[in-house]
Design a protein around this nucleic acid. Structure first.
Length: 924
RNA sequence: GGGCGGAUAGCUCAGCUGGUCAGAGCGCUGCCCUUACAAGGCAGAGGUCACAGGUUCGACCCCUGUUCCGCCUACCA
């Protein structure tokens, strides 16, 4: 083995070996109860970022752990077609080639996307493999696969037949750059400082008088079709039923009373109503039967037709036609000011909606779209979480989820793009012409009005059921990408066909995801799973944090603070990255990732590696086994500690506490196994052929092999590499059994005893350090003990203590002889043993070696600390209420602790007196 | 506006149902190339647990309020 661990030459080799052996594959007939995870499918346009790394590390830990436990563990991988994002990527390519998708046409464009996908869409899958993800690659799925597309059509048709999908003209969020509708949650709200414009609207029958309205979007006033005041507002309610003259237009619009829309305290207390450009106004317009005048075109420019409909003053019409909204605002404000309509402008904090894909400001836009009527689907999805059938972990998210679900709005699922699942709805050209719902804009190009009658079917209908005509056109829209991801837990297992996979693996066990897609994805999977499978899609939803940079900033390319997981894996190794992410995955808290932290865990990997080297170097020689009780104390100690560790790690994994599990492993391996056990074992191994060495060798190897298995889900590569180099049973650690805690190995007596040994060693080291005597080789030590049992124990450990504390000689004596035996010049220390017994230590030093002032300082500090603690104890113990009310075991503990402290305090005071006398120049 | 979360060592964070819980890692300081490991060993310094009240025999932990910082959500135009 090399002196330092080199991940590069290890990782790829083992991943390949696992794959070749078929270890990732789960069969429907496999043994063990199924444990199933479906991957949150990454976008095919995506490249592995830290969020993916965290997400997949956690899934892999769970899957490897369950697989090792003997479960039939399946991790279904796949990718998502990401409609808008992917289309954007390919359109950009076309632009570079000097063409556009419109020039190419729909079919050829889609062909191009598939070509792009074939070339570049698999990158992220390869990156997941580098992470060590043990997915069942034979079951790789893509949301646009034939099977999954079939599922999408089936769901669409059935929801339509159940009246849960409808088509209609609504105000929707429109991205003027992507030229498509977005669902409510695809809009990101960003705080912005805008302005509040106060505009005077003259009363139609009393022109000098006016009503002043306040708005943040003055340019939309051209489309106003009413003004609202509160019906109980004495300032204005007498105007209800009258009209105002809409400035800059030739129109008069009514004043209505509306207690819902109007907030009397805000602005002027009067609101303009623009039903075609604002969601609230849309509803208010409905309530009062107001017209809707759409002013903007798809690119959010002022539409000449709209301006005409709005009867805008001719001169202004000419100036505004086809100007983008942003510029139009200035022009409208200018015109208002000129006309004397502008009362004032004030600063105003507001939220601006932006497209989550391209950050363009979205516009409420009136257009015919498809919607899912969501409430009937949400109700069971709410119940499933309320009843605990589905658990969200950490559970804080439950409220979030329920709150959103209870207030859920219909889901706009149509997108005006080409890449995606085209809606399975057709329209009869003949009927459409007759009813005027289908307008031929050019050859083979139609516009469908909101009233067009769709024919929804699983396959293209051959003729119109109403008129029998054969010329049918398909709805050009595609479905929201999340519509297909919502089916992921069952579409990937073969639904709508009745497959063995569905029978065995559905419902899945755990979903691992970030909270940012709780609504986008998780909620919708629950609704669809319950609707179409009649069962929840998963039992547990583990929601992990966001990965941020060391300053807590969200990582983004534009900020340049991205830590690239691939670069990290190159530099520090995959295992180090995985372990870092696991160790930092504290529930409910974002991960602030820093490179130093990863480096620390790279060092941990190296530590493990070198422990492995030590074992390999000590393989030679006989091995003997014996019942635990007959093994050397150090062995019994590490076995006891190991089994506690196994219990803790397993409990942590069961509760999704990856951070706890990782930290427990780190601490145990480094600070118990390596720092202590390996050191304790060394003397025992010194004489290779001795019976003690034979026993120790066995324990050394067995415990190490066990902890490798325990660690494997977190650090799959290095554990496999080392495991293969030491004695083991089986082909691969990946399919070896996960360790289970065996209480028979837990031995509290041995743990306590060993602790005494370790404390004595630590105390001697401390004494050496105080006197800077570390480099003096030939030091002897003396120990005085009160308790006979402890004395015998220490006597047995004498060679070991001497060795680890670096003493050439160690005398163990009775406490009563201490005064007579204490050398004149000696560093001193004591250890308080359980039960209040005391153990004193001295290391004879030469007078010039001793750093008496330093020892005094150190002991004074400890004395002060003790004094404070003693006071606290005494306060408690002298309080009758405390003694009366406290549980007996706590009282006993407090008393015992107090006694120990009292003894130590007494001893320390004596020592200090002696030291002070020495410092003053006298001899002891 | 509503909701959620956070504030603990220089930094990043643990601290589970109140009773050695004041901890870990990194960083820092001192001493060490001790035959697995300098990506290391040994030892050490460092905190009024945001602030103010309250409950309790006892509070980092529970309650109330305050301040600051995140995030989600919302139609105050």
């Amino acid at each position: 083995m090399e002196k330092a661990y080199d991940p590069k030459q290890v990782e790829q080799r083992w991943y390949q070996a696992w794959a070749d052996r078929g270890s990732f594959h789960a069969s429907v007939t496999g043994p063990g109860s199924p444990y199933v995870i479906v991957i949150p499918p990454p976008n095919i346009t995506g490249s592995l970022h830290m969020g993916h790394a965290l997400n997949n590390t956690i899934q892999d830990i769970l899957i490897r752990w369950r697989r090792m436990q003997g479960r039939n563990a399946l991790w279904v991988p796949g990718t998502d077609h990401a409609g808008i994002a992917t289309q954007n990527v390919v359109e950009k390519q076309l632009l570079a080639e000097g063409t556009t998708r419109d020039k190419l046409g729909r079919d050829r464009f889609i062909q191009r996307v598939w070509e792009w996908k074939a070339r570049s869409g698999g990158a992220i899958i390869e990156q997941l493999k580098r992470l060590g993800s043990s997915c069942d690659w034979e079951r790789l799925r893509f949301t646009m696969d034939e099977g999954l597309s079939k599922a999408v059509r089936e769901v669409f048709v059935r929801l339509y037949e159940d009246g849960l999908i409808y088509r209609g003209e609504r105000l929707i969020n429109w991205c003027p750059r992507c030229l498509t509708a977005l669902s409510d949650i695809e809009v990101e709200h960003e705080d912005a400082t805008g302005k509040l414009y106060h505009i005077r609207y003259p009363l139609a029958d009393d022109p000098p008088a006016h009503l002043t309205v306040a708005t943040t979007r003055p340019e939309t006033m051209l489309g106003d079709t009413g003004v609202a005041v509160h019906p109980e507002d004495p300032r204005y309610n007498r105007f209800i039923g009258k009209k105002v003259r809409l400035p800059l237009t030739r129109r008069e619009i009514p004043i209505v009373g509306d207690p819902i829309l109007v907030n009397r305290e805000f602005g002027t207390g009067a609101v303009k109503i623009t039903p075609a450009h604002d969601f609230n106004d849309f509803e208010a317009g409905d309530r009062h039967g107001l017209a809707r005048i759409a002013l903007f075109d798809q690119q959010a420019r002022l539409d000449p037709g709209g301006l005409r409909d709005a009867q805008v003053d001719d001169a202004l019409q000419a100036r505004l036609a086809s100007t983008p909204v942003r510029e139009a605002r200035a022009l409208v404000v200018e015109a208002l000011e000129k006309g004397g309509f502008l009362a004032r402008i004030e600063d105003h904090a507001m939220a601006l909606g932006k497209c989550y894909r391209c950050k363009t400001v979205v516009e409420p836009y009136l257009s015919p779209q498809w919607f899912v009527k969501i409430r009937p689907l949400a109700a069971p999805a709410i119940k499933a979480v309320e009843s605990g059938q589905i658990r969200l972990i950490p559970e804080q998210w439950t409220n979030n989820y329920l709150g959103w679900m209870r207030d859920i709005k219909d889901w706009c699922i149509s997108r005006q793009i080409w890449w995606g699942h085209q809606i399975p709805a057709w329209y009869c050209v003949n009927c459409g012409r007759d009813t005027g719902t289908l307008l031929e804009t050019s050859k083979h190009s139609y516009t469908l009005t909101a009233e067009a009658k769709p024919l929804v079917a699983r396959h293209a209908p051959s003729h119109c059921p109403d008129c029998g005509h054969h010329q049918l056109v398909r709805d050009p829209d595609v479905l929201d990408t999340w519509f297909s991801s919502a089916l992921w837990p069952f579409s990937t297992l073969g639904w709508p066909d009745d497959t063995p996979e569905l029978k065995t693996f559905y419902p899945t066990s755990t979903l691992v995801t970030g909270f940012d897609i709780l609504f986008f994805w998780v909620a919708r999977m629950i609704m669809m799973g319950l609707k179409f499978m009649g069962r929840e899609p998963f039992r547990d939803v583990y929601i992990h944090a966001l990965v941020r940079d060391a300053e807590g900033q969200k990582m983004s390319k534009s900020k340049g603070n991205v830590i690239d997981p691939l670069a990290v894996m190159d530099k520090y190794g995959t295992d180090a990255l995985r372990f870092t992410l696991a160790a930092m995955a504290s529930p409910g808290r974002d991960i602030k990732l820093s490179e130093e932290r990863i480096e620390g865990y790279r060092n941990f990997a190296n530590k493990l590696w070198n422990a492995g080297r030590f074992i390999v170097m000590n393989l030679e020689g006989p091995r003997a086994t014996a019942p635990v009780a007959e093994r050397p104390v150090a062995d019994r100690w590490i076995l006891s500690r190991l089994h506690r560790c196994i219990g803790e790690v397993t409990a942590s994994l069961e509760t999704y506490r990856f951070d706890e599990a990782a930290n427990t492993l780190y601490h145990f391996i480094w600070h118990e196994y390596c720092d202590w056990y390996v050191e304790l074992a060394k003397p025992a191994l010194a004489d290779k052929a001795s019976p003690e060495a034979a026993l120790t060798r066995t324990t050394l190897i067995e415990t190490f092999e066990t902890l490798l298995r325990l660690l494997h889900p977190f650090m799959p590569f290095i554990t496999e590499e080392i495991w293969q180099a030491i004695p083991h049973a089986g082909e691969s650690i990946m399919v070896a059994r996960y360790p289970t805690m065996d209480g028979a190995f837990i031995d509290e007596v041995v743990e306590r005893e060993t602790e005494v040994t370790l404390n004595v060693i630590a105390e001697v080291r401390n004494m050496r350090s105080v006197h800077k005597a570390a480099s003096f080789k030939h030091l002897s030590g003396m120990v005085w003990v009160e308790d006979e049992v402890i004395a015998r124990h220490l006597e047995a450990k004498r060679p070991l203590i001497s060795k680890l504390a670096g003493l050439t000689d160690l005398k163990i004596r009775k406490m009563k002889d201490k005064a007579a035996e204490l050398p004149a010049n000696a560093a001193t220390g004591s250890v308080v043993l359980p039960g209040g017994h005391l153990l004193d230590i001295a290391i004879p030093l030469s007078a010039d070696t001793m750093d008496i002032p330093r020892e005094i300082t150190q002991k004074e500090k400890r004395l002060k600390e003790l004094t404070g603690q003693l006071e606290q104890d005494e306060k408690k113990l002298s309080n009758p209420e405390f003694v009366a009310k406290v549980p007996p075991d706590v009282l006993k503990k407090t008393q015992a602790r107090h006694e120990e402290r009292r003894i130590e305090h007494h001893r320390l005071s004596g020592e200090l007196q002696r030291l002070r006398r020495m410092a003053a120049g006298g001899s002891a």
